[in-house]
Amino acid sequence: MQTDSVALTIVVPNERYPETAAHIKSAEEHGKSNICTIDRKSAEENRKESLKGVPIKKGFDRDEFPMAMCAEGGKGADIMYVTPEDNRGAGSWISNQLEKYSDGTKVKIVVK
Rank of each mutant, 00 (worst) to 15 (best):
I79W: 01
E19S: 15
K100N: 07
N34C: 03
G74E: 04
K112G: 12
F65T: 06
F65V: 11
F65P: 02
R88I: 03
I38E: 07
G73D: 13
V12D: 02
I38P: 11
E44V: 11
A71D: 15
L8E: 03
A21Q: 12
M80C: 13
K75M: 10
K108P: 03
C70R: 00
G89M: 13
I94M: 08
K100L: 02
T105A: 05
A90F: 01
T37Y: 02
C36R: 00
P84N: 14
N34I: 00
E49C: 15
G59A: 10
N14V: 15
F60H: 09
D78W: 06
H30R: 11
S33T: 10
R47W: 02
A90R: 03
D39S: 06
N87S: 13
V11I: 13
K100G: 00
V11S: 12
E85S: 14
E15Q: 12
D61N: 05
K52A: 08
N87F: 08
K52F: 03
N96A: 08
D86I: 00
K58R: 10
K41L: 08
Q97W: 07
A90I: 01
D78M: 05
Y101V: 01
L8Y: 00
R47L: 08
N87W: 09
V82H: 07
A7V: 00
K100M: 09
A7G: 05
T37D: 02
E72V: 03
K58L: 15
S33R: 02
K58Q: 13
S42E: 07
D63V: 07
E28V: 14
G104L: 02
A71T: 07
G76R: 04
I79V: 11
K25F: 08
S95T: 07
D78Q: 06
P55W: 01
E45V: 15
K108C: 02
K25M: 13
W93D: 04
V111F: 08
N46Q: 08
G74F: 03
G91D: 12
R88T: 07
D78Y: 12
C70A: 00
E44A: 13
I10R: 07
E99H: 10
L51K: 12
M80Y: 12
N34F: 02
I38K: 10
D86Q: 06
D103C: 03
G74C: 00
R47V: 10
N46P: 14
S26A: 13
H23K: 07
V110D: 00
S42T: 15
E28C: 14
K58D: 15
A68P: 04
I79S: 05
A7W: 01
E64F: 04
E44N: 10
G73N: 09
K32I: 15
D103I: 04
N46Y: 13
T3Y: 15
P13N: 15
E72C: 08
C36F: 05
P55R: 08
K25V: 14
K100E: 06
G76L: 07
E15R: 11
A7L: 00
M80V: 09
A22V: 15
K32H: 14
Q2W: 02
N87Y: 03
S5M: 12
K57S: 05
E45W: 04
T20A: 14
I24P: 02
R16V: 07
